[in-house]
Amino acid sequence: MNHTPDPTASRFPTIRQVHARAVFGWVQAGWHDCRQSGFASLFYGTCFAAAGWLMQVVFEHASALFAGLATGFLLFGPFLSFGLYDLSRRIEIGEPPRLAPTLVAWRPNLANIGVFAALLAVVLLIWARASIIVFALFFAGGLPSFAEVVRTVLTFEQADFAIVYFAVGGFFACFVFAISVIALPMMLDRKTDAITAAIASLFACARNPGPMLLWAACIAVLAAIGFATLFLGLIVTMPLVGHASWHVYREVVADEEKTDLC
């Protein structure tokens, strides 16, 4: 059989310019989807929390690696949230938000989603290595426990460590955010190729720097709540981020039949 590629898959989308107040609408819409999805959303949130708990057990005596992976696995969050995007898509088109179909939502665009997931995995591994190096530079006498690291940061005993660690981590987080903020929802909705989706995401950030910075700050606060509650809060905060991200995509990217810039 001859396979005819979808001509819209690599078509560059029209990016809308939005107001900063749109961020509050995204969060509100995400919360609505969380409530509509119920168990399905909580399932994905529990997966995030379970990943944190598992890493805490496995890397209990390797605080540098645990800190890097615990914060770094959120860099992989856009891919892990794929099922949440599909739940929001189903709610939007009037379908029941059932869990089972969302578990394989990546299949229709497997190759491109796999490429994007591989990129995120590479970034995660690089960040984990960078985290170990930063720890080694500031704790030459031996690596502290994770509790000691938290105490050191909160009490400003080593302010220079906190500044360097969060600066390096922030660089990786900004990079992942810029290439993925609308990329994976678009790959789900339009079967877009990975390169087009990543470039469109970068362009969306460039055209809407204020709203995107505010949205990134919201994600950081929600993630911090999750960490502050020993990952328990991720059960709610990560589904909220995932559902809201779908609405970011739907508002920032114009419908395919529309060609005008707003």
Rank of each mutant, 00 (worst) to 15 (best):
114 G>W: 00
35 R>W: 08
222 L>W: 08
40 A>W: 00
65 L>A: 10
249 Y>N: 08
38 G>H: 04
107 R>G: 02
173 A>K: 02
190 R>T: 09
163 I>T: 13
233 G>K: 08
57 V>P: 00
179 I>R: 01
48 F>K: 00
135 F>M: 04
203 F>M: 13
57 V>K: 08
219 I>Y: 03
119 L>R: 03
154 L>I: 12
233 G>E: 12
78 P>L: 02
62 A>R: 07
205 C>G: 08
68 G>A: 12
126 I>F: 12
63 S>R: 02
9 A>L: 06
209 P>M: 07
222 L>Q: 07
209 P>D: 09
237 T>R: 03
120 L>M: 11
146 F>L: 15
144 P>H: 06
111 A>H: 11
165 Y>N: 04
261 L>T: 13
172 F>I: 12
203 F>P: 00
135 F>R: 00
193 D>P: 04
173 A>F: 10
120 L>D: 02
31 W>S: 06
250 R>T: 09
229 T>V: 06
67 A>G: 11
67 A>S: 15
184 L>D: 00
132 I>E: 15
148 E>F: 12
32 H>I: 11
44 Y>R: 02
180 S>Q: 07
147 A>L: 10
116 F>Y: 04
231 F>H: 12
241 V>Y: 05
8 T>E: 14
240 L>N: 02
22 A>H: 12
116 F>G: 00
166 F>A: 02
218 C>P: 10
87 L>Q: 08
51 A>E: 01
216 A>L: 13
21 R>F: 08
70 A>W: 03
33 D>H: 05
261 L>Q: 13
69 L>Y: 01
248 V>W: 04
186 M>N: 03
31 W>K: 05
56 Q>P: 00
122 V>L: 15
188 L>P: 05
54 L>D: 05
81 S>W: 06
45 G>K: 01
152 T>P: 01
259 T>P: 02
43 F>P: 01
170 G>V: 06
96 P>Q: 12
225 I>E: 11
184 L>V: 07
138 F>P: 01
238 M>I: 13
7 P>V: 09
4 T>Y: 15
160 D>E: 15
243 H>T: 06
231 F>I: 05
122 V>F: 14
165 Y>T: 05
91 I>S: 07
217 A>V: 11
154 L>E: 15
153 V>H: 03
259 T>K: 12
221 V>Y: 10
223 A>R: 09
108 P>E: 03
261 L>A: 14
138 F>R: 04
236 V>M: 07
159 A>S: 14
147 A>R: 12
22 A>I: 06
15 I>N: 01
226 G>P: 03
183 A>M: 06
56 Q>R: 05
164 V>P: 06
152 T>H: 05
129 R>D: 11
192 T>C: 11
102 T>N: 04
